[in-house]
Design a protein around this nucleic acid. Structure first.
Lengths: 342, 342
DNA sequence: CTGAAAGCGCTTACAG
DNA sequence: CTGAAAGCGCTTACAG
């Protein structure tokens, strides 16, 4: 299994390595027709495949980018990653996806590993706790874009959802259908993960603007494994909520499990809206009303912004953060209690 | 952003590049204590990060493997991929995942791309239509393992499910619960994709062994977008099936959609079992009885077999194909019609 | 139109 | 205990 190299091709074709290289890179400008043919034949006969590692070393570009996802278990992450991959493929870039598992230490390890592998740029769903590292990359002008979350004081372009609006859309829909006692559960906000904070804020604001009371008992930010206990507590209240907004897909799953365990009927006993249009939403019983994120657009945009930075088409992080619009997908998990349609 | 190289570190520490390299590779055998410290300091001060691309070129090993999945939309693929990643991480190997999208042309492109990138080995969920390429890799003794499917006449170790047993488990469970009219739908077998064929075979055999008639009207292998039409046809029969076995997760999804559209009740009107333990199985309404594949084990095994080949611990493809055992997860989508429990 | 030469950033016998 | 030198497989000015 001796590998055939460019030198072998050059020999076989009776030209120099330089010429073979030109040929491979389609710089045919002054190349003789017969030379081309000889080279093509030699490549064919020897079954030559260029060694990209060698090329990368010389060119100082690997034509690949890294993406570090905070947590691959979210459908959001997988969908966005796929969109990034597709967009990169269009431009002949490859993609290496890593899962930080919500662990800043892992995130750091992956950033270093990917940079050691000389990826040309990074799209990071930041855990938020590697500020020095982010800062260093910014200072070095290393091509970087954040996804889903910004990082305070690190002015790097970030591709994000309009999170407040996402909650607003849900609250409006619920209120328009006659609901009054609305609850919301998000994942833990202890790390100050901004989408969770913003979604909760949006929830409060929307309640306010409808002149509804905002009760702390109805608003919880907890770890997934505590969602069940949290719901138990709510159900012990004199007035349990009539509707609940799940801050993301993992929370939704826990809520659905609780509903089953309590043998509640959706939407008769409880209306549900989930942020993230989970894959089973349309064929669940009942079909689930959700707030969809435009994952495809978001991934595509992130890839384009990064590729522009890599290609120096865009000098700095001067553009405003992109905020993408959520979309309400009305299905059947919200009861019609005779509210006003807006 | 001038990158700092090993030469810079050597200068700073007043040693040669060789010594720095030794240090980095922890070959401390004869290294002076003060030398070590000087090098460590220099690395620290300069913020030096080794360039893995350069190392790979020299060492002719990238410490990364590629995995080419037939279709990333299957939960099976994503779960197995994650297991492979984890197993590789343990051994300090990286993983690049590519999605062939059931398209042999894409598969070929990825094989070539990954080999050009000098990955040390490949795990392929084969589409089956690149036999010459597979053959070539076998001949070159390039480290390779197949997942999910074998390839006829290409004796490369393949990690697979015991597919016949998977169907058998489902049929037995259904019959034990008093069902008689059993149907099965799998994805298209036109490409001779063996798991689909084997699952259908297993279904037939199990029926036989229970002395039940095998009706062609109840056994269909079609593309996902034809599942709905196929079911419509079955429901026009004088006796539609009482129970249906979904050959994989994508087929299951289509069946569930059909059930909803026809407003059928599971399991009163129709019992369902799906091969692949889909993530929503436990909290669907009703919870879905499934046949689970040991995806974690399968991925881990594939990674280990490949890593062994790469490390030459294992000379050839002499080991028998691994067949992994499916597991019946009894939940609530199968009616109890008073059969005999086995 | 094509080739000789230098160099990308490492590693690795080998010499001392 | 450490260094000089060659080489991994390419690309790219530059010369002719």
């Amino acid at each position: 299994m001796k590998t055939v190299t460019m030198a072998d091709v050059a020999n076989q074709a009776n030209v120099s390595k330089s010429t073979v290289s030109q040929y491979l890179n389609k710089r045919y400008d002054y190349m003789g027709e017969k030379t081309k043919i000889r080279i093509a034949q030699a490549i064919e006969e020897l079954g030559y495949q260029p060694n990209i590692v060698a090329r990368s070393l010389k060119q100082k570009s690997t034509k690949t980018i890294g993406v570090i996802v905070a947590n691959i278990l979210h459908t959001f992450s997988t969908e966005v990653s796929r969109a990034i991959e597709d967009a990169c493929n269009m431009e002949d870039f490859h993609t290496i996806i890593c899962n930080a598992d919500d662990d800043p230490a892992k995130e750091k390890k992956y950033i270093e590993m990917l940079r050691a592998k000389q990826v040309d740029g990074l799209i990071i769903f930041p855990t938020g706790n590697n500020r020095e590292l982010y800062r260093k990359m910014l200072d070095e002008k290393y091509p970087l874009v954040f996804m889903d979350r910004p990082v305070a004081e690190i002015p790097v372009s970030s591709v994000m959802l309009n999170n407040e609006k996402a909650s607003g859309l849900a609250v409006n829909h619920l209120i328009n259908n006659g609901h009054r006692r609305l609850a919301m559960i998000t994942a833990s906000t202890t790390e100050n993960v901004s989408p969770r904070v913003e979604r909760m804020e949006g929830f409060k604001k929307a309640l306010h603007s409808h002149k509804l009371p905002v009760s702390e008992d109805y608003m919880k930010s907890v770890e997934p494994d505590q969602v069940n206990g949290t719901l138990e507590d709510m159900w012990k209240l004199d007035e349990p909520p009539e509707a609940i907004l799940a801050g993301n897909d993992l929370v939704l799953k826990e809520i659905l499990q609780f509903v089953k365990q309590k043998d509640l009927n959706i939407p008769r006993d409880l209306s549900i809206i989930g942020i993230d249009d989970v894959p089973y939403a349309s064929f669940y019983n009942p079909p689930l009303t959700t707030i969809a994120q435009p994952t495809f657009q978001m991934g595509t945009t992130a890839a384009q912004v990064l590729l522009n930075k890599i290609n120096k088409k865009q000098p700095a992080d001067n553009l405003p953060d992109d905020r993408f619009e959520p979309e309400l997908k009305i299905r059947e998990s919200v009861a019609d209690k005779g509210g006003v349609q807006s």
